[in-house]
Design a protein around this nucleic acid. Structure first.
Length: 449
RNA sequence: GGCGCGGUGGCGGAAUGGCUACGCAGCGGAUUGCAAAUCCGUCUAUACCGGUUCGAUUCCGGUCCGCGCCUCCA
C-alpha cells in the first residue's frame, strides 16, 4: 500500500508521489530560539520525526530540513531584558532545543539552516520580488504586495476581500494594503542589522523559509510541514514569496499541519501561559522521554491532544510492558499491519493498536517479539535497553544494587523461615525507594519504577 | 463579523452505511505465603432534533456545547 497524506492545500488525503522517487525532500518550520520549547512545540517535531522514519523505511533517500530562527524581534527583546548577547542566547537555546527533542527520540534533521546564515539570499529574493513588481519599498521597509498576486490565500482558503474587511490589523503607514507583509525592515542602532540596498535592516519572519528551501532544495519540495497555526499567515506568505520569485512554481506539493496540544481544551501557548516546557517535564519524568513521545502520538496528528500527566503515565505503563516483552530481543522486520496504518496519513492510534496486538501475540511467540521491537523502533520507542528504561526513574545514589541484592537474599531467608512480616517489611522498604520486587519461578528479580 | 475544526464508554482514542478497534482504570479468575509482574475473561459509549435509507454513530439539514485562525505563535 502506498503512502497517503492529507494535504492542507486541497483538504484531502492524497497519494504521495515525490518529485524524485529516489529522493524525498521535506522542510519543517523550526523554533525561534530565545527560551525553552514547550510540549506543544514538541508535537510537530515528534510527528514529523515519525514521518521521516516512515519515509526512510519506504524510500531510498530522504532529506529533512528544519530551520532555526535566530534573528527575530522576540530574541532582540530577550537580549535587551537579560543583557546577554543575541548570539549567546540563540546558541544556548538552540542547544537546549536539540537536546530536549533528542530526549523524545527526535534526532536532529539532516539540515538545520540558521536564518542569519541566509541574509544574502534573503536580500537577493527581496530584490528579485521588487524587480518583478511583487514588492515595494516604503519608509525603509520592503513590503510584499499581496494584490500583485492573483491567488494569494490558496493555502488558508481566505479571500483577500474578507481579510481586508475583517482586518483587526492597524494599517501601518508603510503598507499600501492592510494584508501586505514585511520582507525587510529597518533596524535602529541598538538593533541587529545588515547592510542592504534599502539601508541597514533585518529580514521579515517569513522570508527565511523561502530562501532556505530555494538554496537547499530548489524551487519545489515534496513536503512542507508545521503546526496548524502556521497556515496563516506564515505559510501563506512563504508561498506568496516563493511563487512570485519562481514564476509560479509551487513551493511544496504537500502541506502538512499538525493539530494543537491543548490544556483543558485550550491551546497550549506561551501567550496564554498554560505551557509546560519539555525541559521541566523531562525532570519530572526522568528518562521517560519515550513516554512523552508516545503521549504525543496517541492521537492522530491532525486531532488535538489534551496534555495531562496522566496521559504520560498511561503511555509509560504501555512502554513498561513492551520493554518487559522485548528484553534482549533483536529487532526483526516491521510487520505490514503497522506500515499500513502509518501509511494511511500517519494513523498512529491505529498503529498503536496493532502494536498492542503484536504485544499480545509476543507473550509466547519469539518471532512476534522481534516484530514488536522493530515496529516500536520505527515508532521511535523501545530504543533503550530494558534495564536503562526502568533504572531511569530513581536517582543513582538512593540505593546500590549490592544493597538491593543483599536485602533480596535476606528476604528469601525470611520467607524460608515463614517470617513473612520480615519479608514484607523488606519489600515495603524497597518499594518506598522505588524498587519493585518480582517473585518469579526462578527467584526474585527487581525493577525500578 | 469572516473562515474552519470537533463533540464516541469512567478516562484516552480509532474506525465504519449493517456486527464499534486498541490502551488505561474497574471487575472476575489463574498464579502468589500475601503482593507485584504476568496470563485468561469481562461491564460501560457514538451531544440533541429532524431528513435520506431496508438500516446511520457514519450521509444531509438544524440546535446546543467546546475550540481554533483572522495579530506573534508548533
Amino acid at each position: 500500500m502506498s503512502l497517503k497524506l492529507y494535504n492542507t492545500l486541497n483538504k484531502r488525503k492524497e497519494d504521495f508521489k515525490p518529485i524524485n522517487p529516489d529522493h524525498v525532500t521535506l522542510y519543517v518550520c523550526g523554533p525561534t530560539v530565545y527560551n525553552y520549547a514547550h510540549v506543544g512545540n514538541a508535537r510537530p517535531v515528534v510527528v514529523f520525526d515519525l514521518l521521516v522514519r516512515l519515509l526512510r523505511h519506504d524510500y531510498k533517500k530522504v532529506t529533512y530540513a528544519r530551520n532555526i530562527t535566530d534573528i527575530d524581534d522576540k530574541i532582540i527583546e530577550a537580549a535587551q531584558e537579560s543583557g546577554d548577547a543575541i548570539a549567546d542566547i540563540t546558541e544556548k537555546y538552540a542547544g537546549i532545543y536539540e537536546a530536549d527533542m533528542a530526549a523524545l527520540n527526535a534526532g536532529p534533521p539532516d539540515l538545520t539552516p540558521k536564518a542569519t546564515d541566509y541574509i544574502a539570499q534573503m536580500i537577493g529574493m527581496t530584490a528579485a520580488l521588487i524587480e518583478k513588481g511583487h514588492a515595494y519599498e516604503k519608509d525603509g521597509h520592503v513590503m510584499f504586495s499581496v494584490l500583485s498576486m492573483s491567488n494569494y490565500g490558496e493555502l488558508s482558503g481566505r479571500k483577500l476581500e474578507d481579510m481586508i474587511a475583517g482586518a483587526r490589523v492597524d494599517v501601518a503607514s508603510y503598507k499600501n494594503d492592510a494584508a501586505d507583509f514585511i520582507l525587510w525592515k529597518p533596524s535602529n542602532d541598538d538593533q541587529p542589522g545588515w547592510d542592504s540596498p534599502w539601508g541597514r535592516g533585518r529580514p521579515g519572519w517569513h522570508l527565511e523559509c523561502s530562501c532556505m528551501i530555494e538554496d537547499n532544495f530548489g524551487k519545489t519540495i515534496d513536503i512542507h510541514g508545521g503546526g496548524l497555526d502556521l497556515i496563516f499567515p506564515h505559510h501563506e506568505n512563504e508561498i506568496a514569496q516563493s511563487r512570485c520569485a519562481h514564476e509560479g512554481a509551487p513551493l511544496a506539493n504537500y502541506w502538512m499541519h499538525n493539530g494543537y496540544l491543548t490544556v483543558d481544551g485550550e491551546k497550549m501557548s506561551k501567550s496564554l501561559g498554560n505551557f509546560v516546557t519539555v525541559h521541566d517535564l523531562l525532570e519530572e519524568f526522568p528518562g521517560k522521554g519515550e513516554a512523552i513521545r508516545m503521549c504525543l502520538l496517541s492521537a492522530h496528528y491532525r486531532q488535538p491532544v489534551d496534555f495531562s500527566r496522566d496521559g504520560i503515565k498511561q503511555a509509560q505503563r504501555q512502554l513498561d510492558r513492551w520493554y518487559r516483552l522485548t528484553d534482549g530481543v533483536e529487532a526483526g522486520e516491521v510487520p505490514e499491519t503497522i506500515l499500513v496504518a502509518l501509511r494511511d496519513d500517519l494513523n498512529t492510534p491505529k498503529a498503536i493498536a496493532e502494536l498492542n496486538a503484536l504485544a499480545k501475540k509476543a507473550v509466547n511467540d519469539d518471532a512476534a517479539k522481534k516484530q514488536l521491537k522493530a515496529a516500536a523502533n520505527l515508532f521511535g520507542v523501545l530504543e533503550k535497553e530494558k534495564r536503562e528504561w526502568f533504572d531511569a526513574t530513581v536517582d543513582e545514589n538512593a540505593i546500590s544494587e549490592n544493597e538491593i541484592e543483599k536485602l533480596i537474599v535476606e528476604r528469601a531467608e525470611a520467607k524460608m523461615n515463614k517470617d513473612f512480616s520480615r519479608s514484607d517489611e523488606i519489600r515495603n522498604q524497597l518499594s518506598e525507594q522505588g524498587i519493585s520486587l518480582l517473585d518469579g519461578p526462578d527467584g526474585t528479580t527487581w525493577e525500578k519504577r
